[in-house]
Design a binder for these strands. Structure first.
Lengths: 215, 215
DNA sequence: CGTGGTGTTGATTACTTTCAAGATGTGTGG
DNA sequence: CCACACATCTTGAAAGTAATCAACACCACG
């Protein structure tokens, strides 16, 4: 893991916090690690043992196949916590999507964190299982709709939704190619369900319609 | 949840136990609940609060879309534990696949089980995330290969693998139709990778080849 | 104002699903 | 123990959805 600098970054206000900030004890004294866009936070196979809380920016968690195919299993936005593992090894990669600030909590060996970690693990498990339904049984438009609904909810349910990640990231999260993602965005736009304010932010015009599409 | 009888079932030896029995404290005095094939153990939306340990048989955990599409997120075999949830409500359905014996542990309110539950939750999370890679990025033959490798490992890595579930269940786990599952089995058979001893048990002839296919 | 990276759109291909018969297996009753 | 009947599974042909291949457009950056 390569943090590019610590503690000296101007800390943006957390006004853009999600509506369900995770309640992991902040220990606000932890220094802030800064990762520029694309920087690796940890790698599969690396020794685990820390928790990471996103302060600002966004993180992708993913796995690779031997031939380079990638599956992003989760995105983490401001306020969310990640990095806990079933054993002492990381089973996934974690990368900053954009310039991202992360508080790193090293878990002292011998300290039992299960009481704090269990709710996070269970929530993550439910989310992963729900995403299985999306990948296993939903078509392209349903997948994108489900993704947009989820992003909207995590950003407080506002009409305008920021997508900090590229089309490639979205595709690798939804099990689609970038072309298919792009075409679905176009279709939703043509149907008047969403508007593209710019590449990385959309407005949900017909919230109800989008929700129905995602089932 | 409808248990059909308790405690009076002849308990089969657990010789067919997986190679990694889960270490949830057995409290062996718990009566055994019996569920015939297809019986519901709990339903989505029901109040949660118990843990379930499979004694014999097999269980499917799944979710439904409004139009009936089903995604099985996990199978649980003898020795495995399921039923823990992020909140007080079940987010999934659990059904016995075959005649199944389950020990039910009601978690007394106020008792903190996090220390016991966290490892199970984390293991489940890792498994679910790995399955995301299969559903999101692998084709039909790779999915079936990954499934067979997983089933083989959970049954001790023997050549012969029992598949307690139907093709429909396998399809709903792998995000495929029964026809595609069947065709892939046929292809693997023709390639000499597996042999079908009968519909519900296969022999892995070329273990290496199967492992490579699953990546 | 170029230039490289990212995103969109179009045409074609490939894989899986769907629809449709058959075949095989299992369980039951005679 | 056998025969029938319903379930499940397999196989084939056609259709549909997403992937791939290929240009082109757009945007951010130097």
């Amino acid at each position: 893991m390569h943090a590019y600098s610590t503690s000296t970054i101007a800390l943006p206000s957390r006004s853009s916090q999600p509506n369900t900030p995770e309640a992991f004890e902040p220990a606000l004294l932890q220094p802030l690690s800064f990762f520029p866009a694309g920087a690796e936070i940890y790698a599969q196979g690396e020794k685990a043992g820390s928790l990471y809380q996103v302060e600002f920016g966004a993180v992708r968690i993913y796995r690779l196949l031997a031939d380079g195919r990638r599956q992003i299993s989760a995105f983490h936005l401001a306020g969310e916590t990640f990095g806990f593992e079933a054993d002492t090894t990381h089973h996934f990669f974690a990368e900053a999507i954009n310039a991202t600030g992360v508080r790193v909590f090293r878990i002292a060996s011998g300290v039992d964190m299960s009481r704090q970690l269990l709710p996070l693990a269970l929530k993550g498990l439910t989310k992963a299982q729900e995403h299985l339904l999306v990948l296993g049984r939903q078509n392209a438009i349903e997948r994108v709709a489900a993704f947009l609904v989820d992003m909207a909810e995590r950003q407080g349910g506002l009409r305008q939704v920021e997508l900090p990640m590229s089309r490639m990231d979205i595709g690798d999260y939804l099990g689609l190619t970038i072309e298919t993602v792009s075409r679905v965005f176009t279709r939703l736009k043509e149907k008047g369900v969403i508007r593209l304010l710019n590449l990385r932010s959309i407005e949900i015009v017909k919230h109800e319609a989008l929700h129905n599409m995602s089932e």
